[in-house]
Amino acid sequence: MTLLKEGQIDRRWIYLAMLCAVGLPILLQLTFPEIPSPKVLDVFDAVDKLPEGSRILMACDFDPASAGELEPMMSAFVRHCGTKNHKLIFLALWPQGAPVIKSNIVILNKEFPEYEYGKDYVNLGYQPGNEVVLKVLVTDFKKQCSTDVDGTSTSTLPLTRDLTKIQQLSLVISVSTGNPGTTEWVQYVASPFGMPMVAGTTAVQAPSLYAYIPRQLISVLGGIKGAAEYEQAIIDHYPTMGENNGAREGLRRMGPQLLGHLLIVMLIVVGNVLYFSQKEKGVGA
């Protein structure tokens, strides 16, 4: 495996360098400080400024593949809502989202023992049908979600008893990675009915959602950077949260991101140096 082949770096060397750039900070547990950006603070305020005990819908539309980026974000939302005593209704449009909901309910039960199922939170689980689910939720909630994940009627659970349309809720939090996801929530729920909504998505998806801010979407957390800043915002406002190791997961994951980004910048520089040296030699690239 030679480093340079026809004036190009063998891609396997690049992969090895990336492995080191991502692996080392994880092994050495490197963390760096974060300051929440205005977009992140908008998300924080949207949750924080709601009256205590407001009802919030948490849409968990991602799979384990993107959990690396989105899981810390989802947990941060749950912890923030728990701190404010907000009532949570969990739902997933992705089948793989259901186990993610369960892992977040574990956080809720462990860190907020006063939370009671049915009264303070409800798990509606996976709802099959992609965006069609949203179209029904805005016209007849009980038609789409007649029971929760355990088969208990939503008409008997105190939190959902009076719910006929999801527009009755105070906020939608969508943590998503693709389709169906935040775009569908904006198109079928937030935008046509003026529902307040915040979102958390992968860094790749975030720029495509900026176009919806602020009228259709209050704000968005983008990737692990957004999660880390949001965690920092929560810690700044509720310092006791800083003692919770789980509430700093996003902050921890910024280490690999830093070295990964720096490696890419370095590769861009090296690539251009090689390009111009080849050009000077008259080889062309």
């Binding site: 992969y15 490696l263 690539g271």
Partner: peptide
Amino acid sequence: MFALLAFFISSAAFRAFRA
């Protein structure tokens, strides 16, 4: 599979960002 993106993005960036 998702983590493969970290590797592919580095090789794509190396190749694509030429002045």
